[in-house]
Structures are given as structure tokens and as C-alpha cells.
Simulated scan of single mutants.
Amino acid sequence: MQKFWILYFALWLSCGLVWAQQQPALSSPPYPTKIYQVRKPSRDGIGKLYQGREIAQVMGHLGASWLERPEREREERTDLLLKALNLKPTDVVADIGAGTGFFTFLVAPELPRGKVLAVDIQPEMIAYLNEGKAKHKAANVEPVLGTESDPKLTTNSIDLAILIDAYHEFSYPREMMQHIASALKPGGRIVLVEYRAEDPNVPIKELHKLSVAQATKEMKVVGLNLLKNDDRLPQQHIMFFGK
């Protein structure tokens, strides 16, 4: 079964790339050469480097079925991830790169007096999120259409931002993280959930994995420090950052 999903994952990636190449570019600033470098793209990258790391190609909305696969909770242990976040009922959580809302709608019931800002840059995903909001009757979920360089979050508005297998695909990681850091309330946290690059047994393409050392290096650039690395998940890091 695992081999099947690995092959499915690869197919989804190729489909998403075809879709992405057919779409008009989102409105984003030009690449600042002092921040980013450009080279010939590798097979799974966009040819743009940040802090020595090539940014991975983006997966499109055609892979929605992968995000909603029945085995996901068992394979990724999203129940353990939810516990690790230690949420308060009043928290405002930003789910960055929310996709279809798989995790958004797990978080929402934990915040009876708070809310989830479900951020994505694809209008098709926003449509999925609105459908899910109605299906789950999740009045405390607010879909937000962001851009490649700006998640469209208000300054000092969130207690936690969670990025699940998303950060490594950001075309403008510094700009995005600067905006997300500015959106944190005092004491707020940013959580990166990424497949472990340190583990060669994790069956994910290299550019779609991220090490603790690389993540810490990149977060430090925008004034964020590693607070804790929680490795309770089978294949992913749960990295907590704060100002």
C-alpha cells in the first residue's frame, strides 16, 4: 500500500506541475537578487535558491484527492500533531497552505471561542474550503486567498500559524515569513511540519523534505528562533518557532 501511495504522490506532483505551468503567474514582486539566486531548475525544483536550498515545485489543486485520502490520518498521525499544538479554546490559528482543509477542519472544533484562518493561494482550494465550511458547519473557519508573497493576515492577529508540508514550496519564503511573523500576537508561535530530510528512509523526494538545521537557518533570517522540535510523528518534524 505504501508503494502505491508513493507512486500516486509522484503522479499528483506531475499533474500539479502541469496545472501550475498553465496558469498565469500570481502578482508577486520580482526576485531580489541579494535574497534569491537563480540557476537551471533541477527535476523537482524551480531553479530559485534561498539560503542554499532550491525551492520545490508547487503542487496544484488536481492533487486534492491525495490530501483527503482515507489513510492520511493513520499515515501522518494528524491526531498526534493536533495534541502537540496544545491549543487554547480562544486561539486564532492560521493554517497556511490549507489546501482542501483536511487539517483546518480538525482544528476548528478545538477552538470554540477562537477561529481558523484557512489561507491558500489557489482559488480552487478556497472553493474546497468554503464547501468544507458548509459541510462541517464550521462557522469559525474563514478562508483567506493569499498570494505567493503575502498571506493577507492582519498584523498582531494570530496566536499560531501552522504550515504543513508547505513552507518548502514557498516561492517567496522570506517575504511570506516576514508577513506571518508580523501577524503573530505577543507569545505567538509558528509551526513548520516538514518531512525529515535527515532520514533517508522517508519516501519523499528530497526537495519536498526539510531538515531542522535548514529550517532554523531560514527562520533566523526573519527574527524567529527554534523553540522546540517535536519528533512524535512517524515521518515529519514538528518545529516550533517564535520571536
Rank of each mutant, 00 (worst) to 15 (best):
V58L: 11
Q57V: 09
V107W: 01
L80C: 09
L117R: 13
R77N: 11
E110V: 03
L62H: 11
P24C: 05
T33S: 15
A20K: 11
L111Q: 04
K115L: 09
V92Y: 10
K115A: 11
E71M: 11
V18R: 08
C15Q: 09
E124H: 08
N86T: 07
L80G: 05
V58D: 11
H136G: 03
P29I: 14
A20M: 12
L26A: 13
I46D: 07
K152G: 03
G101F: 08
Y50W: 15
T155W: 01
V92E: 10
P32Q: 02
G52A: 10
R72G: 12
K152D: 05
P30T: 02
S14A: 14
A139I: 09
P123V: 04
L13G: 10
A56Y: 01
R74L: 12
V58C: 07
Q51C: 15
A25Y: 04
R74A: 12
L111W: 05
R69F: 11
A134N: 08
A20T: 08
K48R: 15
A138I: 01
K34E: 15
R53N: 07
T90M: 04
T154F: 02
L145Y: 01
E71A: 13
V141W: 02
L82M: 02
R39Q: 14
I121T: 15
A118F: 01
R72E: 06
A118P: 00
K34H: 15
A127E: 14
G47S: 01
E75D: 14
P151V: 05
L13R: 13
G132I: 05
K83P: 00
F102H: 14
S65E: 09
R113M: 05
C15G: 11
F105G: 10
P30H: 04
D120P: 00
E76G: 04
